[in-house]
Every structure is written in C-alpha cells, then in structure tokens.
Design a protein around this nucleic acid. Structure first.
Lengths: 199, 199
DNA sequence: ACCTGAACACCGTTCAAGT
DNA sequence: ACCTGAACACCGTTCAAGT
C-alpha cells in the first residue's frame, strides 16, 4: 500500500467523521501526524484528493452486475448498490456529483450498465440513454436525500426513503421497458407545435 | 426593494461572475462597498444567504403549469423550465441541490407538479411519487451537466445536451404513463426472491 | 522519497462602537 | 437601521531546506 493510498484512506475516515465542509488539508495532515504542506507530495491539490476519494467510494460499490435475473433485476441491484455506496459515507453523494473527471471505477460501473442494456436488446444509443436516465435519477435522489439536513436520519426514516427510492426506480425502469419494447417511439414528440393542426 | 434584496441581487451577480467556490462574503461586501461583517445584519450566516439565493433562482423558473396540452406536455414544460432556471446561473444546479430548507418558490413548483398529476388521475401517493421521480431526474442530470468542467460549454455541446435531456425526460414520462395506466402494478416486485419457485 | 518551517494571501464570523 | 474597525481562529498552497 503506497503512502498515497494511506493518505486517501485517512481522508475518507476524516470525511465520515466531520463531513465535507470540515474536511480540511490541515485536519487531514494532523490525523496523519504531518504538516499540511506535505500532502502536496501525493496530490496536486485538494481537488485531486477529492476526485480520488470519489473514485474509491465508487469502487466500493462494485459495478459488476449479478449473473441471475432479467435486465430489470440487474438494473435494480446495480442502482441500489450505487446508492448504498454513496450513503455509506458522509456527504458521499455530493462528493461523487462534484468530482470532475470520472475515474476508473466510475467508468467500470457505467460499462456494466451498458452491457446489461445491450444484452436486453437495446441499441447502443438506447443503452446509453437508459444508463444516463438511471444514473441521473439515482444521483438526484441520493444527493437530495443526503444534503437535506433538516432532521437527523433515524432508522424509520431510512426505511421510508428506501421504499421511496425503489418506487421511483420502478417508474424509471418501466419507462425504459416501454422504450425498449417500442423503439419506434424514440424520435417522437420532437416538434410538439406541429401536432396542433391535427388535434 | 429592501436592503436585503439588494444584497441578494449582488450575490447572484457575483455568483455568475466567479462561481460558487469564489463566492466569498468579503468579495460580496467589496462589490456592495461595505465590509464583510455588515452582511450579518441581513443574513444570519453564509448558509442562509445561499439558501435565499437558491430560492430566488427557483422563483425565476416560474413553477406555474401552462393551461394547454395534456399532463405530459405540462410536465415537459415544467421540467425544461426547471433545468433552464438552474442553467441560467453559474453552479445553479449545485446551489439548488445543497440548500437545506426548501423555500417558498420551491414549494410552489412542487405543488404545481402535484396539481398536474392529480388532474391526470393520479392518487395522492402516485402524484408524489411521480414528481419526486421527475425532480430527481432533472436535478441529477443538471448537476452532472453543470459540474463537469472538462470542456467549456460550447453552443454545439449545449444543443446535444438539450437533446439528451429531453430523451431521458421522455423515458421518465413513459414510466409515469405506464404506472398511471396500470395502478395495480404499484406494489409489484416488492419481494423478488419469492418469485423463484414459480420460474 | 517524504517531511518541516515558515510564510503568503486569503477565509467566515463576532462585536463594540459609530452615524 | 446600517455600517466600520479590528480582531479571532481558521483556510489552501508554495517552497527552500532538512533527513
């Protein structure tokens, strides 16, 4: 394990303890028993450190689809896993949303989704559209869920949020299913105003 | 126009010029010709200022549905409007996602969506599910779109992103449509493992 | 290779005091 | 009501110098 990896591990531990706002180069250095300036041996700047943290959290999610079940089941497992890996760390969703360059783990998860949709019979274009829609829903849900600090997360509210997340996920899956089965609808509705004369 | 509103206007202008990272109480004060400490007469702290900024941006979007078209058309207009109002300001999506208490404008937009789905025949529960799904998709898409700073946004890439956004929006709408027309499916798939014996 | 020491140019926030 | 002046406890980052 390189020194860089040790710094990264300490950074994620500190994130869980104090949150993104208080994740400071000086506090991280203190936890490592060094001075803040020494961190710049391992990361070009704080932004690069945050990018690396986001990619490690994405890797913890494990983007590999399960071999059993139909495409919808596989999407469910992967979407729930993506949300879990973000919720597993304080401010995880916000961190993932604001890191700029997608790292190796994020790319692997994206490719896993693509494979599932391709095997379900989607064109390359429809597969890309489907994964984007799923990912945007998952990220949007989890960011809002985790950013909203009105009430501390209790066990009961977590259960309700899980149920709401799954219900919305079913809506998105139903939309992908409908689009998959009726590919001729892909280009519809591109010019709404032209419908008027016929209505 | 109260002094508080003038401060708010200056803050949004500064946001557009320098971005969220460089939106500083000291820079905002300089733009207003005062000292940073004086800002605390008008806002309890920086977080409260950011909340007020987010709510003003939400208000610019105008959450009122158009009277013409079916529910899907109204959802399209409102979703595209919500994205536009976030894109209209630098880091607008991130700002909206990280403000804690939803303000008056955000609540009004949410109620506008609910009305549309209720008039389309949705139960209160399904209407809430539908608006959450749409909003999560819109926010997730726009946050990623705006946060990703790999390439500066050119006119051509904006057109492509508009098309991708609308395509994913159609997928979500198709999913809501399917759920609306088959309400008996709402509780399906709640226990996947129990299906096994029958397959 | 990894770190220290010290500095630079900043932050958000508070508060007595002014007008 | 609104603002100043001055302070407090912090930031991210750089860089010569040490080992």
């Amino acid at each position: 394990m390189s020194r860089r990896d040790e710094v990264l591990t300490a950074a994620i531990e500190l994130l869980d303890e104090v949150g993104l706002d208080d994740l400071t180069t000086r506090r991280l250095a203190e936890r490592l028993g060094i001075r803040a300036g020494a961190l710049y041996r391992h990361f070009e700047n704080k932004r690069a450190l945050l990018d690396a943290m986001a990619d490690r959290i994405a890797a913890e999610g494990g983007g590999h689809p399960q071999p059993e079940g139909d495409w919808a089941d596989q999407v469910r497992v992967m979407a729930i896993g993506a949300r879990s890996s973000m919720l597993a760390h304080r401010d995880g969703a916000l961190l993932m949303a604001t890191f700029y360059l997608p790292g190796a783990a994020a790319v692997a998860a994206w490719k896993g989704f693509i494979v599932v949709f391709r095997e379900a019979g989607a064109s390359a274009r429809l597969a890309a559209l489907s994964v984007d829609t799923i990912v945007c829903y998952v990220n949007g849900f989890t960011i809002e869920e985790q950013a909203r600090k009105t009430t501390p997360p209790t066990a009961v509210s977590r259960r309700i949020r899980d149920r709401d997340f799954r219900a919305g996920l079913e809506v998105v899956i139903a939309g992908i299913d409908a689009t998959l089965r009726r590919p001729e609808l892909k280009a519809k509705r591109s010019a709404r105003s032209r419908d008027k004369p016929y209505s």
